[in-house]
Write a protein that binds this DNA or RNA. Structure first.
Lengths: 163, 163
DNA sequence: ATGAGTGCAAAAAGTTTGCACCGCT
DNA sequence: AGCGGTGCAAACTTTTTGCACTCAT
């Protein structure tokens, strides 16, 4: 049993990845294994750049090239292990999808902070609508934009923008 | 009074754009006027490329350069006239935000078709959650992925992929 | 004269891909 | 021998930006 931040899962991400790869006659190579490990060693959101950087800093030297990271993250998405949650600063942002409860995000337009929230109602509504439309739902992405409590608070000691 | 596909609005998009521009000491130039016109002459979703193409095909020859279209669409978003709804094939997809009722989308992962749906519950839930978090909501984007009824239907006469 | 605006071409930035070599996770 | 896999660098896409010139919505 693995504990992935609140939810227990019987099969490790790595195993799940291997299973997926097998269905495509692909192999769980050292690089792919290193990637899953690194991805699931992290519980925050991340983008490709951050992942490449973390892989470059491993003490065991098992680095993975940028191309392979791109290819691997796509596979992980297809495998249902991670998902693309949002897009910040022009980059795709990822998070765990496996072993992590479904949730959505409030994203601050100013500081880009992402606040997770969980609400089963939203999903239920989407499911109902999909059913009505004969649409085979596979996932969703809900991002609410606005200002977080820090950025939205009117400041009295506002710094001047000019010199 | 203008009719924008179901909702009547007192001020035309162009006027609203002009008002917005004034608050930034910007002018409603010929190019910007042409762009708003073209954007609101269209009732479907569009991306920058399509808009550039349509502008290039105007019979009155009032074309607008690609850079100006990019700059202008950003301004239109800031003005609240259009919004970025989704991202398909690596491109941002836009739609009217002004004079058009709030809604969300089901997006087919195969043919990219976008099906609009309206549901006030979703918005209400997001508002409640934002309130709880002291988050100043400005908008949201909800895209559900899956297969549309056409693409999801199992085909018996499936064409072979090879030659 | 002035400040904003445009178009062009070049630059960014993120992501994908062709290819030669590698290796059996 | 075979097929998938990797890394590198080059290519590609979309979007942004520097700049010189224009214009007055």
């Amino acid at each position: 049993m693995n504990d992935l931040g609140g939810v227990e899962v019987a099969v490790s991400p790595k195993d799940k990845f291997r299973e997926f790869l097998e269905t495509r006659s692909k192999r769980l190579t050292t690089e792919r294994a290193t990637l899953v490990e690194e991805v699931f060693a992290m519980h925050e959101h991340f983008d490709t750049d951050l992942m490449v950087a973390r892989l470059a800093n491993r003490k065991d030297g098992r680095s993975v090239s940028r191309s392979t990271v791109y290819r691997g993250l796509t596979e992980l998405v297809e495998a249902g292990l991670i998902r693309r949650v949002a897009r910040t600063n022009g980059r795709e942002v990822y998070e765990h999808d496996y072993g992590y409860p479904e949730h959505d995000h409030l994203i601050c337009s100013k500081c880009q902070k992402m606040i997770e929230f969980r609400n089963t109602e939203v999903r239920r509504i989407i499911e109902a609508i999909a059913r009505e439309q004969g649409f085979q739902l596979s996932g969703h992405r809900l991002e609410a934009q606005g200002l977080c409590s820090d950025c939205g608070r009117p400041r009295r000691h506002r710094k001047l923008d000019m010199i």
